[in-house]
Design a protein around this nucleic acid. Sequence first.
DNA 1: TGTCTGATTCGACGGACGTCAAGACAGGCG
DNA 2: CGCCTGTCTTGACGTCCGTCGAATCAGACA
Lengths: 127, 127
Amino acid sequence: MSKQQAPLPVVDLNADAPCCPPLAQRRVPAETAVVLAPAFKALGDPVRLQLMSMIASAEDGEACVCDLTPAFDLTGPTISHHLKTLREAGLVDAERRGTWVYYRARPQILRQLAALLSIEPVAAAKA
Amino acid sequence: MSKQQAPLPVVDLNADAPCCPPLAQRRVPAETAVVLAPAFKALGDPVRLQLMSMIASAEDGEACVCDLTPAFDLTGPTISHHLKTLREAGLVDAERRGTWVYYRARPQILRQLAALLSIEPVAAAKA
DNA sequence: TGTCTGATTCGACGGACGTCAAGACAGGCG
DNA sequence: CGCCTGTCTTGACGTCCGTCGAATCAGACA
């Protein structure tokens, strides 16, 4: 079953999920933790964190694997493996155009993760 | 000499680090990725994500291990191990007071991680 | 059509991780 | 003092992860 860039069985936090009241505001329920943790885990590797950043900060919002790979002292298959991990975590999307494959960040889930980690900047400075 | 809750050799992102221009704004340098990735990795486990949330959202800003442990179907040592992981990632702080040990979240690093993931640099400034 | 380049998948290896049981340590109390 | 409760450490076990080389798949081009 070669479904290269096919929509992998991804966590569907991108759908309608209003899933993210700040972690420090209300206790995260187990089901939410199970769904969200893989996304953090995917970012828990230096190579993937850089890949994610390179993709998200790319000029046209997308980055070619051919630009990503030479940025590391790693083999092609290894980079491909990391990209797959990011894809399965729902952090990026891939699309093949001709010879090259382009990756694109999914802002929604990034926003959700950021919201989860956000700390009230408000006057919560109460003892 | 048992230095149980002594300040472990933790990543020092808490110090003066202005370390976090959004991931999608500028490419994260390798050194930054190496320092930050462990924090995400620590949050990459459902149990630790819940622990982090329980600690950060606790009433008085701190949570007792005796309250944390019974919330999971895991043994004491396992919870202790996860808490140590969070401690080494610089996400929480521990303090022993009498019989019990209390854990407290470190808002600074949470803010940094949230900032790293933030997509919109726009209206976020005020709030 | 054949072949070449780019990207992914497969199979394997070493190391790290999550979990537990058993033991060790710290502090309170009889 | 001795014991009890609470927490952490140690050692072990099975599983997952990061990496590679080799094989495979997808398009482009002659």
